[in-house]
Nucleic acid binder design. Sequence first.
DNA 1: GCAGGATTGTCGTTGTCCAC
DNA 2: GTGGACAACGACAATCCTGC
Length: 596
Amino acid sequence: MFITKSLYVDYHEHKKLAWWKINDIWVYKFIKWIEDEDEWEDMNVKLWQRVEDVVWEYLYKKFWNERLNVFEEVKFNECVDEEQEDIIISSYKNDLETNLKRTEEAILKRTPLIYQAWFLYNWLFCRVDYLKLNANWNYDLIEVKAKTWVRKDRTYKKISNKWAWKLEDVYLADISFQKHVISKVFEEKGLWVLENKYFAYLNNKYIKDWALNIEKLIILDQVDCTNEILLIWEDDDKKEDRDDSLQHYSWIEETVKLIDDDMRLSESEFNTKYPFSWSKYITYFWKDKPFWTIYWKWLTHNYVGQLHHLWKIDLMNLCDEEICMFNRNDWTAWAARKFIDNYIYCKTKWTCIVEKSEIRWELNILNFPLCFYDYETISVPIPFLDKTSPYQKVVVQYSLHKVYENGDIKHFSWILAWTWKNKIETIDIKWNNNAVGHENEKLIFGDYKDVLIALRDDIWEDIDRSSFIVWHKPFENTRNKEVAEMFPDLSDFYLKINENTYDLKDVFSKWLYFSLDFKGSCSIKYVLPALVPELSYSGMNVPNWLVAMNVLNKIITWEIKEEDNKLQKLTDLLLYCWQDSLAMYKIYEKVNEVLK
DNA sequence: GCAGGATTGTCGTTGTCCAC
DNA sequence: GTGGACAACGACAATCCTGC
């Protein structure tokens, strides 16, 4: 049986995950599907390829002025996906020998840069992102990650009385396996030595300024060495120790043997050997945990474990005594108790709970005109706009509903349509069901600052008196803080918005308004359909944020070129964002109605 | 993917009490 | 005054949820 790198890594993450991969691929795929969310994959592959290309460019510029991709045709094949190594093996079975041979030839010829080298040693298979010839005429290994870290700052450990940064376990397993396989192959065939191992990932401290500076964008982080690591990737020379002792050869061999044995077990044998407890993967199957059960998120595991053993799953079936298990003096117990009480009350009386006085107290602090606003952002690994960094969430669209005390509503919105030309166009949207009578839609052709100034101009006259209402304020507030840091001349204004922001989600997250229709969540995904069923996203050209981000990304990276199509897409996006801020207003209205 | 916030869990330090 | 036992506290990592 082939043991691929991805199987090896999966086994480290969770043994049963690896078992499923071999013995029940559908369960495995299901788990991966749940992990990755619906349409995430689709967009991500493209973004990931872009990172790979940039690293390619980087290696080429930095180390070699000639390049050769020995596996050109593999590169843009859809099978390149990391998780599908096994599929590659089976579908390329005939090519396996050929590609191994080509790798060998490329190495013998001392090809400076080798993309996607294949190695097989004793049924252990791995593909290497890049092999790079170094000054000693040996090969270095480079593993590309479309991430901003491989050592999480939180996981540092004490060794030799010093603090050292530790490589994430998954990456440790990843690189150890590769090192093992390649070294063995090199040894066996009498090829050169595998010398250094690197992770290439993105520097999220890098801020793009005019042209993309690849050298600053990509971090080459050496592993399996003892020297210091640069922590701050600027002029600062702050350094600290690193701790990445890789897995030992003999240990890898043993693990591989163990994997081979374990994968051949039947499911019941496997489960006996590795009994399930409250592990990560059992909870995956409960991702949509029904909120009427004891597994709901508000209930802590200690209690749940006890009830689970009593087979008391449904909250309705709990007797007083069992509910009292939650009746302790700390806050969790109180929350759990409150949730169960609320649930049982609503369920038996077919009603919902509205703490009227408390909601009134919360909402009374708001000042007119109420500004319901919402940002749409895009976030990509390789920054494309000036003054932005990798994965930064860049505001490219916003929608604002300004509600005056007399009931008048005005709507403002804009969208970043192009990153040059420096002009602002107003756009008239036809067939808009949600029109409020005072529309003000703009297409902005310019850079990041232009859109921020446009927002300021829309709000300027009300900044001192008005309250701003968002859903989940950490998000919008963080965006505003970033703007304040980036552009000092706009900082007062954007910080002022933060000061006067109220998070409408609070009403629901504090359970001041509790309904079974919210399915135990306070996300707008559940609250909106329950309170304002007529405002639906179905039938819209842009039904969810993933599609929105995808389209926005395409427009701004000039992937959508023809003008007509682009205008249509921009309109769709405006309507989507429009609905978001309108949704908040409608919920607010609904809550007020209930208060009467 | 990334990031912030709220909460929980863990660990080490500090404070208090009491017996000697 | 000293040392052990235990509570109280605080710092920080881990986890979950939310947004895009």
